[in-house]
Amino acid sequence: MNLKDISEAIQGDILYTSKDLMKDYSYAFASDLMSDVLTVKQSNMLLITGLINVQAIRTAEMSDIRCIIFVRNKKVSEGMIALAQETGISLIHSSFTMFKTCGLLFTAGLKPVY
């Protein structure tokens, strides 16, 4: 699925895209715990999280994650968007819960990492 399809599936808003709107994603991982995210070796995955701070962006940067979906309708700060732009990480905002977001994306074809 590309970012456009992913965003539509969860009625999300694309806050920033790093020129990879049509890049395909196969896997997703959902967590609010960044140390858990840092244990995942899978590439080509996106992160679904309700953790709204710059460390979510930093964690994605270190984990080679190119897209983050922020759930539960939380406000993403300007500082987070600026860091996402600097590090080339696309951001999507969703008003849905993490459970609903995961369910919709799983149904749409994204796979779990294990």
């Binding site: 715990l33 960044m34 140390s35 858990d36 840092l38 999280t49 953790l51 701070n53 460390q55 979510a56």
Partner: peptide, 14 residues
């Protein structure tokens, strides 16, 4: 901040 679950040092080791 999303840390402090007791994974850090083992993550570093791994």
């Amino acid at each position: 901040m999303g840390f402090g679950a007791g994974m850090g040092l083992s993550n570093i080791k791994n």
